[in-house]
Design a protein around this nucleic acid. Sequence first.
RNA 1: GCCCCGGUGGCGGAACUGGUAGACGCGCAGGACUUAAAAUCCUGUUUCCCGCAACGGAAGUACGGGUUCGAUUCCCGUCUGGGGCACCA
Length: 977
Amino acid sequence: MEYNFSNIEQKWQQLWNERGSYKVSNDPAKPKFYVLDMFPYPSGAGLHVGHPLGYIASDIFARYKRLKGFNVLHPMGYDAFGLPAEQYAIDHGIHPAVSTETNINNFRRQLDNIGFCFDWSREFRTSTPSYYKWTQWIFLQLFKSWYDRKQGKARAIEDLVKILESEGNAMHPCPGEPRLRLTAAEWKGLDHRRKEEILMGYRLSYCGYGEVNWCEALGTVLANDEVINGVSERGGFPVVKKKLRQWYLRITDYADRLLEGLEKVDFSDAMKEMQSNWIGKSFGAEVTFEVYTAATSERAGANGAGAGEAPRLTVYTTRPDTLFGVDFMVVAPEHDILNSIVPADQKGAVEEYLAYVKSRSERERMAEKKITGCFTGAYAIHPFNGLHIPIWTSEYVLAGYGTGAIMAVPCGDERDFKFAQHFNIPVTNIIGDAFNGLEANPTKDAILENSDFLDGLVMKDAIVIAIKKLEEKGIGVRKVNYRMRDAAFSRQRYWGEPFPIVWKEGIATPMDEKELPLELPHIEKYGPGPEGEGPLANIPAWTGRHLETNTMPGYAGSSWYFLRYMDPHNDEVFCSRAASDYWGQVDLYIGGTEHAVGHLLYSRMWTKFLYDRGLIGHDEPYKRLVNQGMIQGSSRFVYRLELKFIENEGQGKTGKPSMGQDAPVFVSYGIRAIEGTPEFHELVTLEVRNIYNDPSIELESIAISTLHVDVNIVDGVELDIAAFRKWRAEYADARFILEEGKYICGVEVEKMSKRLYNTVNPDDLVNKYGADTFRMYEMFLGPVEASKPWDTKGIEGVHRFLRKLWRLFFDEMKGEIWTTEKATDAELKLVYKTIKKVEDATERFSFNTGVSALMIGVNELTDLRCHKKEVLEKLLVILTPYAPHVSEELWQLLGNEGSVLDAAYPAVEEKYLVESTKNYPIAINGKTRTELNIALDATQQQVEELVLADDLVKKWLDGKAPKKVIYVKHKMINVVV
RNA sequence: GCCCCGGUGGCGGAACUGGUAGACGCGCAGGACUUAAAAUCCUGUUUCCCGCAACGGAAGUACGGGUUCGAUUCCCGUCUGGGGCACCA
């Protein structure tokens, strides 16, 4: 009886399915454990071997927890709204609902192949009305809420209205209009429109104006991804910034709690750091400078009015201590002040510069090494020494951060310094020797000079004093700033959740909750609407109802989906309190780091919001987060020759090969490497003459094109030439210049992508080796968290392991060989040692060493010729999370009742593992020289005597007395000479 | 540019908190079984030096420094690969 994985796997998948083995109920009697994968966006390309990595890890952990007696929730669903489906619709005219359905079915089939323990009865898609009804509902709750900073939580907007009516907004300034001050009487005196406008400034989801990437030629808004070097990825049309009405989430109100919450969760330090960098809390001051400009008087003169009020410039700085090192100011190119301070003689230059900046994406502006900028012609007046400080504008200052303006201190800030150097702006040194004139020094520990009332102070102490002085003068204020901005929550797209908002005379009005869901209408035309509006603006029935034409972004549905799995079929509420109280936080969340700042912050914010409003009982969604690494593709390349033949008139021939002249010729990697040398030219000429059997051929030039080739027709680096000829019709007659009889391909590690022909389909591997082998191999590849290139080569080793395991139970010749004999101590010791290692590895998420421990266990049992049920069935239980099919089959064949899925995880009996001595490595001066077996309870003195009596140690000591003997119990012994 | 992570044999990786570097697997080489192949099993496999051999020596975890009795692990600097940077999901 041999290991027939494909029969076994089919049989058990079917049986488990029929029995509902993975169905889980909300059973308060059992301890719960919630294991969640970041749900997939079902792309048309299907699964490649990189996708299941995290799913396999979570599946192993979920199964492990189940064996440990937990009620495990392990669901799966689809994040089904998104741009690619819509783009596909535009290109192919297939409705996103249709292509999404097809993709999901394909995903499901591929997932089923691998034998996951998902409870599919809880599946949902974010794009179905029964789901997005609740996304819309939560959006409305956000719309109807504001953030009370005094209480530190979200409250109903009605509460705010009551406060405004009774006491005005003195205690609760409006985040949308920070300078607005209202008494109760003033509030009551406002008209409806103005009241709504002010309330909008408080709402947690609100409407405002923001800049987007606008492509006039495509008539659409583009994602940053779709913009490359200032032009659209598709078509290469110019892209500019455009202001459009947008919806936002006021996530900045949650900035502090999102930061503090990180202390309560088990995320990697790297992840926490990324999130807190994103939030970017900084402490500093806003400082307002008077501005001197000729423009004011020009304008005043033109208006015939007086000098008018002088414009002012407010900057944000984290280093008010460097106030006397300011050599210039820089404002963002979008800064409003540029409308009023640029004098006539600088206008041309500034406008030219602004036009240049407009074409550049934010990313490019940040990444660019090139230093650009333009003097505005205006000056800020230093509040303490009255110096005139030139005001520049430059793209390195971003409008969205702080006040969009900075005071530049070149001796202390690297970017400021480079800017000063580039434009020959003299640098003031306020830190003496700490500044060497060659590069900025951002220290806070230097002693200030040339700094008036700050002279002689250490910089970090001067910060407080400077702020105090600024506040006294009324020109500055202490300010906490966040790098994080409110989250843009609308898209000018079709394939997303419609906003349940009706525009009544320009006022955004929430729909009645009873009318939800507001269903996405079916459309035939996916193109953008007029004026950059979304496709919904093309539907008269939609615009006729004055419905919002934007849709929600991809992250809307994913910001709360982990709650829906707890109660997926509830029509009354997004998730019952009973369900969310039982399942609580996601105990283990697995997904890629690419979601570090987007999805994870949004879902954390939504959770906090729902908690604030009493809708759920916990305010952090994920207890523990594990980031699986990215499986990269290992691309293979072939090198096609682009030959130019010399016309050869003298012989009455063209010199061109007479046959197969269109057949492409490829050179092997090693030959390509000498491209450009005379040897290369000679070699290729010779080979081409051979190939075409025409000795008169002369080549004028040889160029090489590097082309991706499907990794599946390359064995290691050697191209399968026959398969290559079949791969593409145009390569059917391909010729090759080989090295040592082989065609060697180039190799590069890249993202795994269909476009690069480096994808490996899990289906093929499951067919060939079985799901159990595939699962174990993915884990064996390396740590789950690590990124690594895929290589199918080692899969045979894991497959051999499973066959070797099988042979502990069955022999090809003798058949059944397992017995019910009593196990020996040695055998029990071995299996307990294995259990301990595997359990420990599983807990630590070190599945690669878990697999390794299982391999060692099987190897050693084989060496002991141990075929005893008592031992083997323990092994099967610990193997179950990794290889459930073969474990279940063997479990049954051993005559066990019930499924191995519900067996109890074997407890380690420590008494079999106790050791009394250890082989200690003995090092002389830190270099291991020998080993000694010493009792574990030996004292320092006993150890010293034993070690110094050893012949080898004596030899190394060479008669000298040791300085010290270091004895670390359980570890090693080091003799210092 | 900024932020985060990584770099160990021919390859994937192991060494959990500083304590025998290279577990386990792949590949490769040699051997056994076989008419042959597959499957399976056995032996070897970081590099260099010496040697019949050794449980002989030296070097060695990207590179250069440092801390320590002892560093793949901690610190500083350099190089290099990957991920993210707000409308891909």
